[in-house]
Amino acid sequence: MTRLLSLVPLVAALGFAVPVLAQEEQSTAPFAYRQLSDPAQEREAQALMETLRCLQCQGQSIADSDAPIAGSMRSLVRERIAAGEEPEAIRGWLIERYGDYVSYAPQLTTLTWPLFAVPLVIVALAALLLRKRFRRGEAR
């Protein structure tokens, strides 16, 4: 009986170890950590993955992230590239699904045009103010 009681801590430790090991498992997506066999397709997929943001990480591309969702996204990109889909079509699908945040290359839309226009307006105002200031300096 005492021998059985001495096994209780061991069984309890093993019971706690199983969930910990399960948490360490990375993405189950087939191409998350495996490259495509065609080097040209892999280069194309890698170039696209470097321009897509991981939804879980702060500022990392899916090519650099170890998050499970990044692994799933890498696998998805590779699968679609292998199927012959164009990178811009894949980017468009991901933007449609996850929003503009997923792309490091923002699209010009009715919502984002002010982000592109405001810096141009600021530069134009600065040029106008500097021009007036230098003209006043020449008049003296």
Results as ranks from 00 to 15, higher is better:
residue 8 V to G: 04
residue 76 L to S: 06
residue 77 V to G: 01
residue 1 M to P: 08
residue 62 I to M: 02
residue 124 A to M: 07
residue 54 C to D: 04
residue 99 G to R: 02
residue 126 A to S: 07
residue 129 L to N: 04
residue 121 V to G: 00
residue 116 F to D: 03
residue 37 S to P: 05
residue 60 Q to R: 12
residue 3 R to Y: 15
residue 58 Q to R: 11
residue 75 S to C: 06
residue 12 A to Q: 07
residue 31 F to W: 07
residue 94 L to F: 09
residue 65 S to M: 04
residue 117 A to Y: 07
residue 45 A to N: 00
residue 54 C to F: 05
residue 28 T to C: 11
residue 96 E to A: 15
residue 30 P to Q: 09
residue 121 V to I: 13
residue 100 D to N: 08
residue 43 R to M: 14
residue 87 P to H: 03
residue 129 L to I: 11
residue 66 D to R: 10
residue 39 P to H: 07
residue 104 Y to A: 07
residue 87 P to Y: 01
residue 139 A to D: 10
residue 31 F to D: 00
residue 108 L to I: 08
residue 12 A to M: 14
residue 79 E to C: 05
residue 112 T to S: 10
residue 24 E to M: 14
residue 58 Q to A: 14
residue 79 E to G: 07
residue 30 P to H: 08
residue 127 A to L: 12
residue 8 V to F: 12
residue 140 R to N: 11
residue 70 A to G: 02
residue 96 E to L: 12
residue 111 L to I: 06
residue 73 M to K: 00
residue 51 T to N: 07
residue 9 P to K: 05
residue 70 A to W: 01
residue 130 L to F: 15
residue 39 P to L: 08
residue 129 L to T: 08
residue 73 M to G: 02
residue 19 P to W: 06
residue 48 L to S: 01
residue 104 Y to W: 12
residue 9 P to F: 06
residue 3 R to Q: 15
residue 91 R to S: 08
residue 52 L to I: 12
residue 7 L to M: 13
residue 30 P to S: 11
residue 83 A to T: 07
residue 122 I to E: 00
residue 103 S to T: 12
residue 65 S to K: 02
residue 103 S to P: 04
residue 93 W to D: 14
residue 87 P to Q: 05
residue 100 D to K: 07
residue 92 G to Y: 09
residue 36 L to E: 01
residue 3 R to E: 12
residue 113 W to I: 08
residue 32 A to V: 07
residue 48 L to C: 04
residue 102 V to S: 01
residue 29 A to Q: 03
residue 72 S to I: 10
residue 48 L to P: 00
residue 10 L to A: 13
residue 135 R to E: 09
residue 40 A to T: 15
residue 47 A to I: 12
residue 11 V to L: 15
residue 14 L to Y: 06
residue 129 L to A: 13
residue 92 G to Q: 08
residue 37 S to Y: 07
residue 11 V to F: 13
residue 33 Y to C: 09
residue 21 L to G: 15
residue 134 F to N: 09
residue 81 I to H: 00
residue 140 R to E: 14
residue 25 E to T: 15
residue 70 A to F: 00
residue 26 Q to P: 05
residue 122 I to F: 06
residue 70 A to H: 00
residue 131 R to C: 08
residue 13 A to F: 10
residue 103 S to H: 05
residue 116 F to H: 04
